[in-house]
Design a protein around this nucleic acid. Structure first.
Lengths: 158, 158
DNA sequence: CGATTCTTTGAATTTTTTTGCAGAAAAGTT
DNA sequence: AACTTTTCTGCAAAAAAATTCAAAGAATCG
């Protein structure tokens, strides 16, 4: 069923590139682009895509992907966490869902091991390369909480 | 007005700790706890709190904070990017939050190194195994943008 | 205090979204 | 092909959520 796949893709595109405040608006655009569907189907599509309706500060509403919603959420969230003077650590950076720790070459796996040993509740696990550690937050914690916890336990430079 | 502040806090708590599928459910709990309000007010409160209604895989809906929505976003949606004829690369695939590059055995770490060297703004970092590279998008960029940037800089097969 | 302004709220809608159901279309089987 | 099963969709109704409007409650200011 090609029609549906195309439609789903189109919905993604439209949601990403335009401000959609309710399903009717989106429906109109889709109809205009030649898709044939009703609002009922659209509701089901949006549900399947896990698109959410978020309130805007200006009073309106906006349909967005969850990760966009999170990034729009009152942006108090800093992206870089000061690594202070932690041995081997170059930087700690948070994306929406993951924390990336950059280390000096060769340090990553040792540090990752330290992190794992610490059994931090916020951290589900780590994956280490040569100079990069990927830290996966445990469900319920956001990347900033993880970064805070991380910075606390990492060995300091003396 | 203290009443409102308390209520807002209570809503936060309830949303965090229980599964709320619609406003009536939440309203009932609030009434039970002694708050006096109607659905109209609740709608306004939820709007102000930027709480979103998200679809669950089991068919139901759930009111959650945006960051929780993002962390719940299922990664079933894999968009495949044609790797053209890039040396050693078997495939480049995007999930919602990560890009996975599959390579011929042994190529991964060299390629990951190339990627890191390129200092692509869209890319926060990479982690390489033997035949797989995990690419983490920097905040603000989506996986498709990363994949596009990647394909551009990767060495082509001659 | 009294007048004025701003905020909050409920009742009653209106608007928007979801869903039960049945039929149509596609995919899978024999 | 003929039959079965699964997926998809529209229609209409139900359910859920947002908003209009009027009024009650605070806050501000002279």
């Amino acid at each position: 069923m090609k029609e549906k796949k195309d439609r789903i893709q189109a919905i993604r595109d439209i949601i990403r590139t335009r401000d959609i405040g309710n399903q009717q608006e989106l429906l109109d655009i889709l109809l205009q682009r030649g898709f044939r569907l009703t609002q009922a189907t659209l509701s089901r599509d949006l549900k399947m895509l896990q698109i959410v309706k978020m309130s805007l500060s200006d009073g309106g509403y906006l349909y967005v992907m969850p990760d966009v919603a999170a990034s729009m959420q009152s942006n108090l969230t800093h992206h870089f966490v000061s690594p202070r003077n932690i041995k081997g650590v170059q930087s700690v950076e948070c994306s929406t869902v993951l924390v990336v720790v950059r280390t000096k070459p060769g340090y990553a796996s040792a540090l990752a091991s330290d992190i794992d040993q610490a059994m931090i509740p916020e951290i589900m696990g780590t994956i280490a390369g040569d100079d990069t550690i990927l830290v996966i937050p445990r469900g319920g914690y956001n990347t900033n909480q993880v970064a805070e916890a991380l910075v606390k336990i990492l060995p300091r430079q003396k």
